[in-house]
Design a protein around this nucleic acid. Structure first.
Ligand code: ZN
Ligand code: ZN
Ligand code: ZN
Ligand code: ZN
Lengths: 167, 167
DNA sequence: GGAGGATACGTTATAACATAACGAAACGAA
DNA sequence: TTCGTTTCGTTATGTTATAACGTATCCTCC
């Protein structure tokens, strides 16, 4: 699960996500209605967390004006079936690149470019469960959101520092 | 750092937090004003995350009615000096039991009783940094919020299950 | 193919959380 | 005391999320 680069074939990301959603919903006997599919598609417009009200606006631009509950209901559905993750620290939502395979979200957030990626490290998961167990606490769900610099922005910053050093 | 039990000497918790805050602010040359100290005290009224507007209401009951910015400013101060943590998944705030010693919040949240505790496991911290580094991502700040059952609620649930089994 | 329950949706209103902007007051060093 | 800095009060507004209720659609069973 690499960090998304600036120029990758993103339409492929979207297509893969929609296909996976279709399949996962069939498997679960859940109905992926028009609204839900379109909201999922809009969430996938970028690899950045999207707010509910931004989605609402996007819907409007597609000629599908709606009120907040419509979007929140679609988001609730997508969350419930593991097709998206909530990014609590940003009040946003992001598409899950590998639904079906159950996992809490481990999300990397670049403070520079805003891009997000999933970490999805089972060892990390396990370390949390073990560490919590030492306090007698049994884990149900994890929210892990890590801020920092993505590879691209890090490279960029380094080259800027060289510039400053020369100057 | 054990999970807070139902009956512990909580006034001692509050006192310790206030003392630590006093000391930490002196060390940093920061001004722990009346408003700030009182808000900190109110955050510590329980071991559950508290919302800004709940604090606002509490302030009112103390005869110190205020507007939202007053509370948010105090919270910003307390956050900036590591005296409280923000619980993003609950839009709430919780007192930090060991300020000064720099750390991102690793927070355990009981879905049954609402109590919170800090995990503060350096190995976990390190695992995240390492895991992220494998993707070329450099970490700045972590938000770790873990939902589950605290020891007390777990014991309770187990005994309930026994009841059901007998019946 | 119609009856009836379950699921999904539209709509209005409102709750809950957070910040912008500006002036007055308190503080602290010179 | 003077002046700059920090803190605070206040008004207004922005942003995120949900309650409540009726309607439409779907799906199953008869
Ligand atoms: Zn992509
Ligand atoms: Zn970046
Ligand atoms: Zn306590
Ligand atoms: Zn509990």
């Amino acid at each position: 699960m690499a960090f998304p680069t600036a120029r990758h074939d993103h339409s492929a990301c979207i297509q893969a996500a929609l296909d996976a959603a279709e399949q996962e919903c069939r498997r679960r006997g859940a109905r992926l209605t028009d609204t839900r599919r379109i909201v999922l598609e809009l969430v996938w417009e970028s690899h950045r967390p999207v707010g509910a009200y931004a989605l609402l606006e996007s819907l409007g631009k597609l000629g599908r004006s709606a009120a907040p509950p419509t979007v929140y209901r679609a988001l609730d559905f997508l969350l419930a079936h593991g097709l998206i993750h909530r990014v609590a620290s940003r009040n946003g939502f992001i598409g899950c690149p590998h639904p079906g395979h159950a996992h809490g979200g481990q999300i990397l957030l670049c403070t520079q470019c805003g891009m997000a990626a999933e970490l999805d490290d089972p060892a990390l998961d396990q370390e949390i469960v073990n560490s919590a167990a030492r306090l007698g606490f049994s884990v149900n769900r994890q929210t892990i959101e890590v801020e920092g610099l993505c590879p691209v922005c890090r490279a960029q910053r380094n080259s800027e520092e060289e510039q400053n050093y020369v100057a």
